[in-house]
Write a protein that binds this DNA or RNA. Structure first.
Lengths: 171, 171
DNA sequence: TATTGTTATACTCTATAACTATA
DNA sequence: TATAGTTATAGAGTATAACAATA
C-alpha cells in the first residue's frame, strides 16, 4: 500500500505545485505541508505503536524534559501552541499514564505546574532517542549542506510568519 | 546536565528550537513541524471563518480542481494521504455542501469518481485565491532567493523520506 | 480471490466559550 | 477586575478492521 509509485504520485498537495516561478510562497507552503504530513504520519504511527503516545503528547513532554522544574500550564500552552483548555486534557492523559504530575506551588494558588515524573523522564528519553533515529533514516539521502541551508532558511520563514500574524504573541 | 551522547536529548523540541549543531535531521524536522503548525493554524482558522472549510477538505478540493474529469476515491486517497475510509467521510461532507458529486462510471461498478460541481469550482477558486494572499503576506519578509532554495531543498527531503518509507515497509 | 469503496468504532485533537477560584 | 486553569461542547481528523458489491 505504501509502495511508492514513483511515476504516478507526486504528492504535491493542493493547487498546482509544478508551475515554475509562479506564486512561490504558496508553492513553498504546499510543499512544506505535504512533506510535513508525510513525515508526521510516519512519526505518529511509530510513536503510537512503539510508545503509545501521540505527537502533541510528545511535544508537551519535550517541553517539560528541558525544564526540570516544570512549567506552568499557561506557559506550556504557549510553547506547544495548544489552547489552555486543551492543555488541560493533554495533561490529564499524561498524568493518567503516570508520566507527569501537577503541583500547585505556594504563593499563588491559581497556578498549576506540570513536571515529569521519573517514569516520564525515562519514557521520554527513550522516545526521543528513537525519534532521532527515525529522522536520520528518513533524511539519509539529504546532504548535510542542504539540511543546514534548510534549517537557516526555515528560521527566516518562521520569523516572517510570526511577524505577520496578530501582533504580539511570541513566548 | 549530563553531556553524554546518547542521553543528551537536548530536544529543543517542536516549538522552540534553539540549539547548537547537533542532530541536524531532528532539528530540521522540529523546525519544519513548528513552522508548519504556525502557518497551518492560521490558514485553518481563516478557511474555517471565511469559507467554512477545513484544510483536508481544501486539499481534496484542490486535487479535483486540477482534474476536471474527476478522480476515483482510491486515487484521491493516495494523493491526499488520507485512508480510504476517511476519504469516504470527507467526500460525504463535501457532497452534502454541494461542492462535489459522486458518480459511478459504466464499465466497473465498483468504482466511484468524485468531481467538482460548478459551485465547487467557484468556491474552491475563491479559497485558493485568498489562500495565496495569506501566504504571500505571511512570507513577506522572506527573500525570493531563500524561497527558491527552500523549494528545491524541500523536494530533496521529501524524496528522501518517501524513499526510506517504502524500504521500511517491504518486510 | 482480489479490488473498490463503505461502515463501524474508538480515540484524539481543535476551537470556543462559559465557568471557578484565586489574586 | 483580571488572571490561571477547568469544564463543557461540538465537530473533525485519524487509524484499524470488518464488510458488501463487483470483478
Amino acid at each position: 500500500m505504501a509502495q511508492a509509485d514513483n511515476e504516478t504520485i507526486d504528492l504535491e498537495i493542493i493547487v498546482q505545485d509544478t508551475q515554475e516561478g509562479k506564486k512561490p510562497e504558496l508553492r513553498l507552503w504546499l510543499r512544506m505541508l505535504s512533506t510535513t504530513k508525510l513525515i508526521s504520519q510516519e512519526i505518529r504511527r511509530r510513536l503510537r505503536t512503539e510508545f503509545g503516545a501521540t505527537l502533541p503528547q510528545f511535544d508537551l513532554l519535550a517541553q517539560l524534559y528541558r525544564e526540570k522544574d516544570g512549567l506552568r500550564l499557561g506557559e506550556l500552552s504557549k510553547r506547544t501552541m495548544v489552547t489552555n483548555g486543551n492543555v488541560t486534557g493533554l495533561v490529564e492523559r499524561l498524568e493518567g499514564d503516570g508520566l507527569i504530575v501537577r503541583e500547585t506551588p505556594h504563593g499563588d494558588r491559581r497556578v498549576t505546574v506540570a513536571k515529569l515524573t521519573r517514569k516520564g523522564e525515562d519514557s521520554f528519553s527513550a522516545m526521543a532517542k528513537a525519534h532521532e533515529g527515525w529522522l536520520r533514516d528518513m533524511m539519509a539521502d539529504v546532504e548535510p549542506a542542504a539540511i543546514k541551508v534548510l534549517l537557516d532558511d526555515m528560521s527566516l520563514v518562521k520569523a516572517s510568519v510570526s511577524n505577520h500574524l496578530s501582533e504580539g504573541e511570541s513566548a
